[in-house]
Nucleic acid binder design. Sequence first.
DNA 1: AATAATATGCAACTTAGTTGCATTTATTAT
DNA 2: ATAATAAATGCAACTAAGTTGCATATTATT
Lengths: 140, 140
Amino acid sequence: MPNNFYEKAKELIRHTGNRLTHNRLRTLAILLAEQYALTHREIEERLNMKEQLDRVTLYRVLEWLSKNNLVHKIAGDDRVWRFRVNTELHSHQHAHFICTRCTKVTCLSDYRIKSSPSLPLGYLFHEIELTIKGLCAECA
Amino acid sequence: MPNNFYEKAKELIRHTGNRLTHNRLRTLAILLAEQYALTHREIEERLNMKEQLDRVTLYRVLEWLSKNNLVHKIAGDDRVWRFRVNTELHSHQHAHFICTRCTKVTCLSDYRIKSSPSLPLGYLFHEIELTIKGLCAECA
DNA sequence: AATAATATGCAACTTAGTTGCATTTATTAT
DNA sequence: ATAATAAATGCAACTAAGTTGCATATTATT
């Protein structure tokens, strides 16, 4: 039963060349274990069982994970960031589904987005984001 | 020079069957005059010149305008709502462009989205939102 | 084991948005 | 026009997400 999300997390963090810390490890392992995007709050709840982790540190850990392309942030309609792990199979070039009832965010991996739309003159394309809103299987 | 956004705003609010108030009128007129989506703050700034309007009232006015389909809300990456008027030609079934430098939101009216994507079993489609990030003409 | 660079915890802060309640205003029916 | 009434407004106090500065602890290196 020793979960191998910790092993995977360790490998991913080491691979960045930066420091492997307890908090980065715990946080990433939690995100690796989830099928959908978690809020700062939800991650905190999952951490509570074990030793406590400061709110601010968690914000900084998430920011670090994000900047190192281990996770990606999703902006929801409730003004709360949600975080989802980036695996090789799971780049951030995909659509997100937001359930308007339970506010859970699911990544639609198999829904690929066609790139480079036509923009007004002088505009520079950087990234495209597709969000689908509705009810998830549990709420429908 | 008497701007006709007030006339247009009056007509739109009257058409809802609800009360025509000074604040709804002013707010909607401001949004009608803009080419891009405004934050609560930006609307407040534009109001400052004239008589003051309470923060809370403005929030309630914007919520009312939104519920009555006169404007639509856009969730940006900075956790701030932006509001854009809905005209007949300008339904909310379109893409949004967000400039990552100046954070301005522009509606890409001519970028229509194909409807009903395929979702996981049991999921219910409601709405689709396409956001393009990059640099606007002024920031590029 | 000592060092240097970086991560962490704490306290205090900022900012968007919300709630409850008393007062004012827009509409209506007289 | 005016009174009645339902809805809108202003105010004060609140919530909740996220940020900043700084002193202390931890990681990786020598």
